[in-house]
């Protein structure tokens, strides 16, 4: 489908909206977690269902992946994937202000994921005069919880095993780096093609004002 391709202006506009959302979300996070979040330019690209697992190759090293669905008015919806690397899971409890044995690593990962996803998307939505609702976050895969010996399964395998009912998705990748705890985590938003068309019309409306 060609009409889902964003042109340069649309891409730029989306990028700027994401930038502002990222900035405000990071500010809230920084205050809540009492730390500083280092911001990088987010990446936006279109991926085909076939190549999704390829584009997630790097992320395949993740120990844990949390998925959370989001949906707003005007047919804007998608799925957020939060990816954690092995070295980072130890630092989570510290970051969230829990005592070490107060809750499991899985719970910490889910908790932080939900905070990262909802703070970002709330600001994102308010910028385009929308409002988001969320599904409960789910741990898709965690090597910590892995009790079988075939621990080679990874996010790309996990995704490969599903057959999708979409052809193209918009992939937005945002990297969070928390300096005080040297903690990293990637947030990947996947927006299916029917929703891209809806986002595009919202973007066009914003661009008309310029």
């Amino acid at each position: 489908m060609n009409n889902v391709n964003l042109n340069e202006d649309q891409q730029d506009c989306l990028q700027e909206i994401i930038n502002v959302a990222m900035g405000q979300a990071s500010d809230q996070l920084a205050r809540y977690l009492d730390t500083f979040v280092y911001l990088k330019v987010p990446s936006i690209e279109q991926v085909s269902a076939q190549h999704l697992s390829d584009t997630l190759k790097y992320e395949a090293q993740s120990v844990a992946v949390v998925s959370q669905g989001f949906f707003g008015y005007e047919g804007i919806r998608g799925e957020a994937l939060l990816m954690y690397q092995p070295k980072d899971s130890d630092r989570l409890a510290d970051l969230l202000g829990y005592e070490p044995d107060e809750l499991s690593v899985e719970e910490q990962i889910i908790d932080l994921s939900s905070i990262l996803t909802t703070t970002f998307l709330n600001v994102f939505a308010s910028q385009i005069d929308n409002q988001m609702s969320y599904s409960a976050p789910r741990l898709l895969f965690s090597s910590n919880a892995d009790n079988n010996t075939s621990s080679q399964s990874s996010i790309s395998e996990h995704i490969q095993h599903n057959s999708f009912n979409w052809d193209t998705a918009l992939k937005v990748k945002i990297s969070y780096q928390v300096t005080d705890y040297s903690f990293n985590c990637d947030m990947i938003l996947l927006i299916p093609e029917s929703a891209i068309i809806n986002i595009t019309s919202v973007i066009d409306r914003i661009l008309e004002e310029y």
């Binding site: 809230q28 996070l29 205050r31 809540y32 969230l96 202000g97 829990y98 005592e99 107060e102 809750l103 499991s104 899985e106 719970e107 889910i110 908790d111 939900s114 905070i115 909802t118 703070t119 709330n122 969320y134 409960a136 976050p137 789910r138 741990l139």
Partner: peptide
């Protein structure tokens, strides 16, 4: 209720003004 956990959970809802979840799989 696990008081400390519960308070931390609610403080994230209040401070970040965002919804939060807790699944039976974790608790």
């Amino acid at each position: 209720l696990p008081q400390k956990w519960f308070e931390r959970k609610l403080s994230s809802v209040i401070q970040l003004n965002t919804q939060s979840f807790c699944s039976w799989e974790q608790r």
